[in-house]
């Protein structure tokens, strides 16, 4: 079987399109590359959706934590503490069993026990907590001068937040937020490794990598392939976030524009 055929058969296997049976013999490099790459679709799906949805919750949580009203601040603080203080791995397990028991009493929750939704919810809440903390930190370091200038222009309330506080916060938080995005993508590999079961052998990149490692008894090929894909993904994320960073800082003179540096202090 030529490599092109393999790609046609397996490149969308992870979402159920193409050959039904996973390869059972040969285990050529081509098969491994195609199938593990196909699994990356899940990692990208989880990462992108959780990141996009999480962004909005994160901003609200950050504003909540910075609030002077105790009834708003406390829940935000607890939310961040619970999700940042416990391992994502355990959160996945716990959430799965929680969803199972929810489902038994309220059938409405039944889609939550499948990975596509349940794991997404966990990742969404998790990344919201981590980025919420990052945004909160940035919110605290918005220069006083900016806010005073906004006051001088007569901007108040929502208008001040939208036109001054929020853009500055975003600019300050962006390098750390880039880090968070990278880690979130890495964290998506845990989905099928913990509570959530694999349906119809449609799993993520790690699922297929361990499938091959299991069949060939040789971990030295599939895991480096997985690593290769993830390095590619990481580079893409850095490039994408770098572009946004350029746009966020477009008003600054060239010399003061800082290139996006992935600062190590703020990894999750």
């Amino acid at each position: 079987m030529s490599c092109l055929e393999t790609i046609a058969d397996y490149s969308l296997r992870s979402i159920g399109i193409g050959e039904r049976l996973l390869p059972r013999e040969d285990f050529t490099l081509c098969q491994q590359f195609t199938l593990i790459g196909s699994g990356m679709l899940w990692n990208i799906y989880f990462g992108v959706l959780a990141l996009c949805a999480g962004f909005f919750l994160a901003v609200s949580v950050a504003v909540g934590k910075a609030s002077h009203i105790k009834a708003i601040r406390k829940p935000a603080e607890w939310f961040i503490f619970v999700f940042r203080g416990s391992p994502l791995f355990v959160q996945f397990f716990f959430a799965y069993f929680l969803f199972l028991s929810l489902k038994q009493s309220v059938p409405f929750f039944s889609p939550l026990t499948s990975a596509w939704l349940g794991a997404l919810v966990v990742l969404f809440l998790n990344t919201a907590a981590y980025s919420g903390e990052i945004f909160y930190g940035a919110l605290q370091s918005v220069p006083k001068g900016d806010l005073e200038a906004a006051d001088a222009y007569g901007l108040t309330g929502w208008a001040r937040f939208r036109r001054v506080t929020f853009p500055t916060m975003l600019r300050l938080a962006w390098p750390a937020y880039t880090n968070e995005a990278i880690f979130l993508f890495h964290a998506t590999t845990l989905v099928f490794f913990s509570g959530f079961p694999t349906l119809k052998q449609q799993g993520d990149a790690l699922y297929y990598a361990s499938y091959f490692a299991d069949k060939t008894f040789n971990p030295f090929v599939p895991y480096p392939i997985l690593a290769f894909y993830f390095i590619l993904l990481t580079l893409t994320v850095i490039a994408g976030f770098g572009l946004i960073n350029r746009r966020l800082n477009r008003h600054l003179p060239h010399t003061r524009r800082k290139k996006l540096k992935i600062r190590p202090q703020i990894i999750r």
Partner: peptide, 20 residues
């Protein structure tokens, strides 16, 4: 057929109990 896989035997039975 539609296969759903679990890591331990115990989990496969639990999956039937709770309708997975």
């Amino acid at each position: 057929w539609t296969l759903i896989e679990f890591a331990t035997p115990e989990e496969t039975v639990a999956a039937v109990r709770n309708g997975e």
